[in-house]
Each structure stands twice: as C-alpha cells, then as structure tokens.
Write a protein that binds this DNA or RNA. Structure first.
Lengths: 243, 243
DNA sequence: GACACGAAAAGTGTATGCAATGTGCGTGCC
DNA sequence: GGCACGCACATTGCATACACTTTTCGTGTC
C-alpha cells in the first residue's frame, strides 16, 4: 500500500538524488520521484534532522532535490496525510509539532497498541519467531553493560519491530508503525536518561518471558507499562520542543 | 490535521462543484479544490458509489470536477496515503480492494480498537456523555421494532462515534475512525441479515450498561465481541467483492 | 490460424507559467 | 509614538504543455 509506514521506516537510508539527467531520466529502482522524496523527507523528520515546527518551503525543496514543485507538492500532501507535516491553504507545510495533550494521547495509544501486539505475539508467534526475539534480546545485554546508547536504540527498534510482526496482523502492524514514526521526534533522548538502558532491558525481559510462556495477559501488561515508562521518560524532553 | 478522518466522515454530503467561474474563483467555504475532491471521492468510496477495484482515471475525474489534473493527482495521492485507493507507477489509481486476509486483520484490529474505546469511555466519559450515549441507544429501540435498516445504520454510526469520542484520546479516535472508513465498503449489507438489528441492539445494551456502571473490563469485552460478530456477518458479503 | 513485431493511442509523470493569497515593511495619519 | 492603511514581495494553488511508459490493436510472417 502506498505510503505504508512499513516501507518508510525499514528504509532508513537517506535517498536524495543529487544529480539529474537533463532529458534522460535515470532509472531509479526505488520508484518515482515523489516516493523518493516522501522517504527522504520522512527520514529527515523521524531521525530529527528536521525539527518539529520547521517550515518546508516548496521551492527550496524543489531546488534541493532538483525537481519541479509538482512532485514536491504531491510528496507534502502525502506526508500531510501521514501526519508528519501539517498543511493549511496558502501556508508553508511545517513539520508536525503536536500539542502536549495530543502527544499524551499518542503515547497512550502506543501503549495500547504495543499491548495488543504483545498479547497476540504471545499467542501466535512461531517457534522461530520466539527464538529470534529471545536471541535479539539476549544480544542486547552487552550493549547495556557497555552503555552503548546508540547501538541499544537500534536494537530497541528491532526488538519492537519483531513484536509488531509477531502479532500476525497487518493492519495493527501499520497502525503501530505509523504511530511510532510520529512519536519518534519526541522520544529521541529517552536512552540518555541515567539508568534507562538497564530498566529498558528489564522491561524487555518481562515481555520476552511472558511471550515464551505464551502468557498473553502478562505479555500485554508488561508491554503496556514498558511504553508508559517511556512516555514518562520522554515527557521532559518533549516540552522542550514546543514551538 | 489534514486528511483527518474526522472531517471526511462527518461531512457525508457530496460536495462536487459543478460550475466554475471562468477567471474569478467563487469563494467556497469548504477549503481548497483538493480538499473538496478528497472528501467527495472518499464519500463515494465509503458509501459504496464506487466499488472496490474500480479505476480512478485522472483525466475523467478532472473533467467530472471541472478542474485540471494537478489537484486530482494530489487528491489521489492523499487518498492513497489514507488507504482508500491504491496506486502504482504509471497505473490508474483503483479503489482499494483488500485481500481476505487483510480484511480479517482490519476487523480484528477494529475489535481491539473498539474495546479500547469502550474501556476508556467507561472510565472517562462525563456524566453528560454517558447520558447522551444511553439516550441515543434508547432511541434506537423503535428503529429495531420498525425494522428500519437504513435509519438504524445511521444511528449505529452515531452510537459508535460517541463511543470513540468518549475515550478522550484523539489519536485513538483518528485510528478507529480511519479503520472504520476503510472497512465501510465491506460491511454495507450487515444489517440486512435477518435478526441482525435486534442482536446489534442487545450488544449495544451490554456496552451501555457496562459504561454506565463504569465497568471498563466488561465494556471492553462487550465491544470486542460486538465487532467480532459484525466481522462474521460481513464475511459473506465481503467475498462477493473480491475482484 | 497463431504468434511476433511495431506503431498508434491512451494515460501517467513532471515542468513551467500565471493567478491568487498571505506577509512584511514603509508611510501617513491620529 | 503608536496604529492603520496600503503596496511590494514571497509563496502557494491551479492550469497547461510536454515527455515518458504502458497497453492495445493491427499487420505481416511462419
């Protein structure tokens, strides 16, 4: 499905085409110009290269990507529908800067969605999926001891993605992935809080244990409280981003 | 937020501008041309005027709405991001026709989302909201006795919308509203099944009772099974729409 | 008669131009 | 000195034109 967050988030590489053939368009395997721009801009927002509130001027983007304004406009429209940028008539698009109240509702929704995924994963994961999740989790232990925040963040993303896929429900996967992307700009600093790494590891431990036991209720509760704690950890950081 | 399903779904009136001033654009209070088209096309899909699999030719739409292809393309891109149409490069957009497996995942997700809304509503609804929900529910009794399928369907939409709003969580509201819109084409005939009206009423009764008692667990369970039954009722109809 | 090749037609992708709306600054009046 | 009006500039909204891709239909050959 077009604009699926699965594709946007799994391709974390910036894909800006810097040179363009004058009359002969190079065949790019990644799709049309618009799709490339959607991915590129989404990445910039999700990774924090562009901060909430920042303006996205059509002409500047067109110049930057070396295309005309038409595909830029379509990309911005799609990003708007995805919730990553906000647009109103005759105004520049701006990177979405949600209110504190809406941010809270997204974290709460995220907790519910993670709980759903954990419950369903506990019931439905194949043996291989369970083993892979546990292995991924065990591997992260050394990152905790080393205090490798960046690496742990990458592991954390992978861990949760496995949880989402394990639910074996494509629509839930779409919703949770999209919600995570929209929350990304607001929780970047969570692992820099002292002791957050080891607490995160312990929380993952509870989730993994419950899933290995196929205890869906326990898995759901563990996942819910895990996100709730992340929400608290991000709260301080979030307010600093209010425009 | 642009493309929010709240706006699309609450404005159920078709808003096609049939005549256009030659050089002087009439001031339309409903927003830009693209937004009007998004609403209009979304309505056609959700209400069943356009069936899943139907092609959306850009030139034809442009002629039909008396605009150029540029706004049509932007509208189609937004509808694509919303999941109502599917697009691939150099192909016409088509009304989304999901696979049976994805349809199942959407119904399952819908049940989870409704359960969340019911739980949160049981905890958070104001006195007025509770009373309004109960009143709305009581009013529908006579529609059941009269067998007024169309009117009951409208009531049903209103009832569920109150449930979604009562959760007091904007992001959950967005997700559940968008999911409902995408499911709409596949459950149109649910109330034509014999006895469905009175069963629906009884299921609503259980939800309302639990919410009035602030029994969130019971409300969640009642809402979940309510949707699960709708899913079964729609299953027969859905397969007839497979391309 | 069937299959392969090719040209035309249909339709999407992108660029560019112009109109309209919003913004900011400067000037004049109170 | 402050506020209001207005003009110029910046930027978006939409239309049109053209390039490219895909499909389809016709023709010729095997």
């Amino acid at each position: 499905m077009e604009g699926s967050w699965a594709s946007v988030c799994t391709s974390l590489k910036l894909q800006i085409r810097t040179v363009k053939q004058v009359r002969r368009r190079e065949v790019i395997r990644t799709g049309t110009t618009v799709e490339q721009m959607v991915r590129a801009i989404a990445d910039m927002i999700v990774t924090g290269t562009m901060l909430p509130g920042e303006k996205l001027d059509e002409a500047s983007l067109a110049a930057r990507f070396d295309v005309s304004r038409t595909p830029v406009r379509e990309a911005l429209r799609q990003l708007g529908a995805m919730g990553l940028v906000e647009r109103e008539p005759n105004r520049s698009a701006v990177v979405t800067n949600v209110t504190g109240s809406y941010l809270h509702s997204m974290f709460e929704a995220m907790a519910e969605l993670e709980a759903i995924c954990a419950r369903l994963s506990a019931e439905r994961m194949t043996i291989d999926e369970r083993r892979a999740l546990e292995f991924e989790h065990r591997c992260s232990m050394k990152l905790v001891h080393a205090g490798a925040e960046e690496d742990y963040a990458a592991h954390n993303t992978e861990f949760h993605t496995r949880l989402y896929r394990g639910a074996h429900n494509d629509h839930v996967f779409e919703m949770v992935t999209q919600t995570r992307a929209r929350l990304a700009p607001f929780r970047r600093a969570q692992f820099r809080l002292p002791g957050r790494l080891s607490r995160s590891y312990e929380e993952h431990e509870r989730i993994v244990t419950a899933i290995m036991r196929a205890d869906s209720a326990a898995a759901g509760q563990a996942a819910y409280s895990h996100v709730a704690i992340v929400s608290d950890a991000s709260a301080v950081f979030a307010v600093t981003n209010e425009a």
